[in-house]
């Protein structure tokens, strides 16, 4: 009936969703490896509006003027909606925990040759049989390095996903049947992702499952990741994310072949055992955005009340006989 009513209602709904995204960012302010979302607002598809039964008629050169035909006024967007929640993959700050099963991921990978953002992730998977390597469709990605060891001795995330090594196998830290060859608290993770254990004499030894390196994956254009919740992302872009070692090798090869001459292309990254990457949520910014969302919500409500006032006039005052 009156367009402004629906436009303002759409505005209220969009602001409500924006508030939900901000509330979720605040809720996860202490979640390790959490990446904040930013709501993206988009106008409804624009439509042409026309005056119907126009007395003047459309004035098209070379044609006679016909009255009573619709005449185009112009374009109008009739509202707004939240089209997507963009995760911001900026590095979070790191905090020391001194726990051997906590790993912070630090990356400063350069954009690829086409200028796409590249980010480093741990690969994890839910497996029925942890003895078998994960299939590509089972692999998920996370930045949360807050892990523990389950009763069977495998490295798992707090939601029960197995942490994978560079051959997509679950990482076995302890073998309950063979405590002498288990890592226990002596699991070591090198700053390049190497996995080993040290014995009492300080010798570096292999883990019982034979895993040698964490499965670090380079995700090019991480916006193609789908947030599944529980700190887990699923890859929905083309191909599969590259293995870190392979990605770095490709960069070096491209530079050696002269395909890419920027010497800064080689990625830099590091792991810190006993540390955690914190959420990259800025509470002050989030609070301010929330206040903005609230006031925009209120303004839209004011528009609705105004339109309603107009309608009231139409309904109750026009056509009143004895005024």
């Amino acid at each position: 009936m009156i367009r402004g009513l629906y436009t303002a209602a759409a505005g209220m709904l969009a602001m409500q969703q924006r508030q939900e995204v901000l509330a979720n960012n605040l809720a996860n302010i202490n979640t390790p490896g959490y990446k904040q979302d930013v709501g993206v607002m988009r106008a409804f598809p624009e439509q042409l509006i026309a005056r119907i039964r126009d007395q003047e008629g459309p004035n098209i050169q070379g044609l006679p003027v016909m009255s009573g035909q619709p005449a185009v006024i112009g374009r109008l967007h009739s509202g707004v909606y939240m089209s997507e929640a963009l995760p911001i993959f900026r590095q979070g700050d790191i905090a020391e925990t001194r726990n051997p099963y906590d790993v912070a991921l630090l990356d400063n990978l350069q954009p690829d040759q086409d200028g796409n953002e590249r980010r480093l992730f741990f690969s994890v998977a839910r497996l029925d049989n942890p003895g078998q390597a994960a299939q590509p469709d089972q692999i998920r990605y996370t930045r949360n390095g807050n892990w523990s060891v389950n009763a069977d001795g495998y490295l798992v995330t707090s939601d029960g996903y197995y942490v994978l090594d560079n051959q997509n196998r679950a990482i076995r830290v302890n073998d309950p049947a063979d405590p002498a060859n288990s890592a226990g608290q002596q699991l070591k993770i090198g700053d390049d992702g190497a996995l080993y254990r040290v014995d009492e004499a300080g010798n570096a030894l292999m883990l019982p499952g034979g895993s040698e390196r964490l499965g670090l994956k380079v995700v090019t254009n991480p916006l193609q990741l789908v947030r599944e919740g529980t700190n887990i992302y699923r890859w929905e872009g083309g191909g599969q994310p590259e293995d870190l070692v392979q990605a770095l090798q490709n960069d070096r090869t491209a530079r050696a072949l002269g395909q890419y001459t920027d010497p800064a292309v080689e990625g830099r990254y590091g792991l810190k055992q006993g540390w955690l990457e914190r959420a990259n949520v800025d509470p002050a910014q989030t609070m301010t955005d929330m206040m903005t969302a609230l006031r925009a919500y209120e303004a839209n409500q004011r528009v609705i009340t105004t339109v309603e006032g107009t309608l009231e006039k139409a309904a109750n005052e026009i056509g009143r006989v004895n005024g």
Binding site: Q17, E20, A27, N28, E84, A85, L86, L223, Q224, V226
Partner: peptide, 10 residues
């Protein structure tokens, strides 16, 4: 759009 279709809110 930059992300896969759908709106995901935690």
């Amino acid at each position: 759009r930059s992300t896969p279709p759908g709106l995901r809110i935690g």
